[in-house]
């Protein structure tokens, strides 16, 4: 049957194509995501059976020769019963697998929350706590987790509804003002996985992304340790000038740097930049943290991400270089 071959082709192309994107739900690097992939194949198999059956009978009905004897009503009645029983049993398989696999999802660890993520417009504020719940530090758009350890996330929003989604690891959970949601994630492999806001949240929804960096327990501890330090020891003349420029161009109004100055809290506040130099990406997971990209961003933030809250600022050439150097050194 042409239809059957088509289905086969589709299956193959599905399998091939689904692996290519770095944000694919088929990456399967967290237990939730793996469960859902298994569920998908059950759903896909059942759907294929139904679609092939319906197409087969519809084709058969349309191609029937006008001389062929008509099917009598008794057979049709029997067919209806068979179809109904078939539909219901397939539905039961779906419901059963949904509930069992769903159960596995809600078996969440009751451990302490070590990471709190607050959705901003249009970036992610990330706060770390130690096991006793003591606040450690704040960062943005990059969440480090130790590999093979379940981490409970607290998900908040203080503006509109956003949705936290790392397809490689787990399904999404909304971040709703006035409510506290939780999600437990566990990375089964080391690596950097991209996530993205999945609930429409305004003009820059499309580029509101972040990365989850899963690394070995040792590296994770080092990272935590480094972030509890202040990176402000003066490293060069340029650094000093950059720091000054950071004040004189009023960057500090929206971007805090721990140990330097707290930014004014407002709905327009931007990410905390204390360890900006160590981040892999910036502008909410959108551009790699290289000098070239960063220059472009500082020159024309509205051109790159129209409508975001970072204004374009006219900066003199020397200061511009100095600010870049300063940010790079914040490690």
């Amino acid at each position: 049957m042409i239809k059957g071959r088509l289905i086969l082709l589709l299956t193959v192309s599905f399998a091939l194509i689904s692996c290519t994107s770095e944000q694919s739900t088929f990456a399967g690097l967290g237990p939730q995501a793996v469960n859902i992939i298994n569920l998908w194949w059950i759903l896909f198999a059942i759907s294929s059976i139904v679609l092939i059956t319906v197409s087969f009978f519809l084709t058969k009905a349309s191609l029937r020769k006008s001389t062929a004897p008509a099917v009598d009503d008794q057979t049709l009645g029997r067919g209806l019963v068979i179809g109904l029983v078939g539909t219901i049993s397939l539905l039961l398989v779906i419901i059963f697998s949904t509930l069992t696999l769903g159960q596995a999802l809600s078996d969440e660890e009751d451990g302490p929350v070590e990471i709190e993520i607050t959705a901003k417009m249009w970036w992610w504020q990330v706060k770390y706590f130690d096991e006793s719940g003591k606040y450690l530090f704040e960062t943005a758009n990059e969440i480090h987790v130790p590999v093979n350890r379940a981490m409970k996330l607290r998900l908040l929003s203080d503006n509109v509804i956003h949705s936290f989604w790392v397809p490689a690891l787990a399904g999404k959970v909304d971040m709703i003002p006035g409510r506290v949601n939780h999600l437990t994630i566990k990375a089964l492999k080391e690596g950097t996985f991209r996530g993205q806001c999945a609930e429409f949240c305004g003009v820059q929804h499309a580029l509101m992304a972040f990365h989850v960096v899963a690394e070995s327990e040792d590296k994770y501890k080092q990272w935590i340790h480094a972030h509890t330090q202040r990176p402000l020891a003066i490293k060069s003349k340029k650094f000093k000038r950059g720091r000054k420029a950071f004040f004189s161009y009023d960057c500090i109004r929206c971007h805090s740097i721990d140990g330097l100055k707290e930014a004014q809290v407002s709905k327009f506040s931007g990410p905390n930049l204390t360890h900006f130099g160590s981040r892999k990406y910036f502008a909410a997971g959108t551009y790699p943290n290289t000098k070239g990209h960063l220059s472009g961003w500082l020159l024309d933030p509205q051109g790159l991400k129209p409508g975001n809250y970072m204004p374009a600022t006219a900066i003199s050439a020397e200061d511009f270089e100095a600010i870049l150097a300063f940010l790079k050194e914040l490690k």
């Binding site: 739900t25 469960n35 569920l39 759907s47 197409s55 949904t98 769903g102 999802l105």
Partner: peptide
């Protein structure tokens, strides 16, 4: 009939709670 069946089947998929957590709003 064919197109609606396909839409119905993907509908049953997204009605499945865990699967929807991945595909919702995509």
């Amino acid at each position: 009939v064919i197109v609606f069946v396909m839409g119905g089947l993907s509908g049953i998929m997204v009605a499945s709670l865990p699967f929807d957590k991945q595909t919702h709003d995509t």
